[in-house]
Structure formats: C-alpha cells, structure tokens
Write a protein that binds this DNA or RNA. Structure first.
Lengths: 154, 154
DNA sequence: CGCCGTTTAATTGCACACAATTTAGTTCAC
DNA sequence: GTGAACTAAATTGTGTGCAATTAAACGGCG
C-alpha cells in the first residue's frame, strides 16, 4: 500500500472491524435459541466437516490459540456439544469429538442461519467479490505479521 | 443474497472476522509502545477530529454502547489520555476531552501506524475496492439488523 | 406542582481474544 | 540412555464487546 494512504488503511481496518461485528451480531440472532456463540458455531462447523480433530488443528484452522480454545471447548463440553478426550500415545494432545447432540444440531442450526442470511440484499456476485478482496487482505496481513515476528526474534 | 448461498455468507462472515482480527493485531504492534489498544486508538482518532464530545456521540460514531465505552474511557482517563467531565446543565451526560498528552500523541502514533501500514503490499486500488465492498456489506447488515429488532419489539 | 415516559450513563455478568508464562510430555542429537 | 530443544495444552491476567438491568435525570402533560 502506498505510503500516502494511511487514511485508506485506517478506513479499511475500521470497516472490517464494524462489518465483522455486525455480521457476528446477525449470526448470534440465529444461534441464540441454541445457546451457541459464533466462535462455538465455527468449532461445530469444523467438526461437522471432519470429526475427531485435535485441539491444535482446530486452532490452526480458526486462528485461535489454546488460551482461547481451552475455555471455549470446556464450555462446549459442559453444554453437551462435544467431548474432549486425551490420546493414549501422546498425552499432551486432546482430541475433540462431536456428541450426538452436536451432530444432530447441524441441520436445524443450518436452517436458522439460512433463514437470516437469505434476507441479505447483497447480491451473490458482490458477496463473491468481497470475499476475494478480503481473502487477499488476509493473505497480505499474514505475510506482514509473519515478517514482523521474525524481526521481533532478533 | 440468494437462498442457496449460505456457504457464501459463512465464508464471508469468517473472512471478515479473520481479516479484522489480523488487521487489529497489526495495529496493536504499532500501538504497543504507547500502551494503547485498537479501540482506544479509535476513540483518540475521533477526538483528534473533534474534541469535547459526549460519550454517547462517540458511541454512535464507533458503534459502541456505553457498556463498552464506560470502562474503556475510564482506563483511558487513568492513563492520562482523556478527561471525563460532567455537564452542568445535564448531569446524565459526560463530555470527553483530550488531555495534553492525548493531543500530543497524534503525530507519533500516526507515524508508528504509517510505518507498519506502508509495508502492506495490497495496492491502493484493491484497498479502495475492498473498502467499498465492505461498506456495502455494513449498510446491508445495518438494514437487516434494524429490521430484525423491529420484529423483536412485537 | 407532581407523575410518568424517555433518554442516557453506569452496572452486572458472561464469553471471547490474546500476550505471556507454566506445566507436561516428546524427540532428537550425541 | 539422557539431557536439551521442542511441542502442546493449560493457566494467568488484561481488555474488550454486548445483552440485560439499574439508576439518574430530564421533560412534557394533566
């Protein structure tokens, strides 16, 4: 980005921040009847895609550290969505399994989300474009942050 | 958005969530020497633009409620960035003023941000496009959420 | 004047996020 | 084999975000 464009970066960062919070607020409306939060829904989606994943893998996919996942997964276990089971061969690891309740929630939760997101007036074309743009931003930021942490090592 | 595109909404929401967190992480690197957080920086920016604003007005511009701003502003006052002063004519209100420290931070903080954001490889054109797309999403979500809260009133 | 609805700030309680540290377990070089 | 380097999860502490509630004060109306 050009040096003269601090203002653009500021606007972009703030727009992403607001858009993210608003989108999550919309999702929370759909998730509230299930007593799920948005990060918890993300974990469920990962597990619906592929069950029996280690905590670490979930963290990699969602960009969460163990300090975020540990209490989040504990709450999800308490509420019966998942089970946290240790591994015999490596006692450091923890494998996350869906419970029956967790598996069965897939359809109704999906429908609740559908019902709200279908009301968006944003065209699929524009949505696609925004997705691509934002993925480019993510890639750029990841590169930059990785680079920064190398500098920090010194 | 089309009914068949739940997956697009899911991807978009997640991309916004990740991009926002990454961008904020980048900003925090610049803000860390000043012991400022990103939301605190946003408040400072509003006040650099126009000083002596009521808490409520700041909340409107940043999309924060008083339950977020109250503790945030208290911390900022403790650290000497701002002052919270009651109004003689209306004791419910609270006007936020910059301190000298808060005013003088504008240039060095801006430079620190500049130094990091200048390293983005994202082209200004793409940044502009992403900004427009995301602003369209914000507008769409605000419309939808406002509509939902009307339904909720019933 | 006095009451009531409204507005606004503060409070409470819960759930993230994340930096930094600690604890426990594994692996690899020698 | 064993000790250092590494890895994974948990812990600690701070700072948001936000729903829901409470408290305070204004303002209009009878």
């Amino acid at each position: 980005m050009n040096v003269s464009d601090q203002s653009l970066a500021n606007q972009l960062c703030f727009a992403l921040y607001r858009a993210s919070r608003l989108y999550i607020k919309l999702y929370q409306q759909a998730l509230q009847p299930f007593a799920l939060t948005y990060p918890q829904y993300l974990v469920l989606r990962m597990l619906w895609e592929a069950d029996h994943q280690p905590l670490h893998t979930l963290g990699t996919q969602l960009d969460f550290g163990s300090n975020t996942l540990t209490p989040l997964l504990r709450r999800m276990e308490q509420r019966g969505w998942i089970q946290r089971r240790p591994v015999a061969t490596d006692r450091r690891q923890l494998i996350i399994h869906l419970t029956d309740q967790g598996r069965q929630a897939q359809v109704p939760v999906g429908q609740a989300i559908q019902q709200l997101t279908a009301q968006q007036q944003l065209s699929p074309t524009e949505g696609q474009l925004a997705l691509l743009e934002n993925q480019a931003i993510i890639a750029d930021l990841q590169r930059l942050l990785a680079h920064q942490s190398i500098i920090k090592e010194k």
